[in-house]
């Protein structure tokens, strides 16, 4: 899989989007979880993409799928680095959906998509991994964040199995 290139068939039921920056230390964590997932998920059922952009670009990536899992770095400072948060769109921490820079926020992007008549996923799950340093240009992650990658992969797989997105028996080479 390569950045923002779709891995597979036209409209698999589920899309997984790894968000972040591959050369900004811990900020790469969402992309690394997605890469790990891409190695073992059935492409006809689950599409895995990675992207450096949120906002309106994200709408393009998730439109047409029934459910979407978004994976990104987060800094709430209310949990130790490596903690895995699970949010819905409505309970994204308000401290992080503020007015600001060059993109619209996720709820706004989704409302815009609805306004345009796009088919956005009925179920959107956000996996956010607490990070300690997303600002240093480096391909190295801090230990606690790197250790969260297999745990996050397992939690997403468990949820995909539970909701029937993938077969319970799906073999996953990345699992340990």
């Amino acid at each position: 899989m390569s950045e923002t290139e779709r891995t597979s068939t036209p409209h698999p039921t589920v899309v997984i989007v790894g968000l972040g920056n591959p050369i900004l230390s811990d900020d790469a964590v969402g992309i690394l979880v997605a890469r790990e997932l891409a190695t073992g998920l059935p492409p006809e059922r689950v599409e895995v993409v990675e992207s450096m952009r949120g906002g309106l670009d994200l709408v393009d990536l998730i439109t047409g799928h029934e459910s979407a899992h978004l994976i990104d770095a987060i800094q709430t400072k209310q949990a130790p680095p490596g903690h895995i948060w699970r949010f819905g769109v409505s309970d994204l921490p308000p401290a992080l959906t503020l007015a600001g820079s060059h993109e619209v926020d996720l709820p706004t992007a989704l409302r815009f998509a609805e306004q345009m008549g796009y088919e956005i996923p009925s179920r959107i799950v956000i996996w956010a991994i607490e990070v300690s340093d997303p600002y240093t240009v480096s391909e190295q992650l801090s230990d606690s964040v790197r250790e969260a990658i297999p745990r996050c992969v397992e939690r997403i797989l468990a949820e995909l199995r539970e909701d029937g997105s993938i077969e319970v028996s799906t073999q996953f080479p990345g699992s340990r």
Binding site: I74, H102, D105, I126
Partner: peptide
């Protein structure tokens, strides 16, 4: 303004 690393995080906007 664009502060590189701060802008692509999941909520999509630079927290301010």
């Amino acid at each position: 303004p664009c502060y590189a690393c701060a802008t692509h995080s999941l909520p999509g906007q630079m927290p301010l």
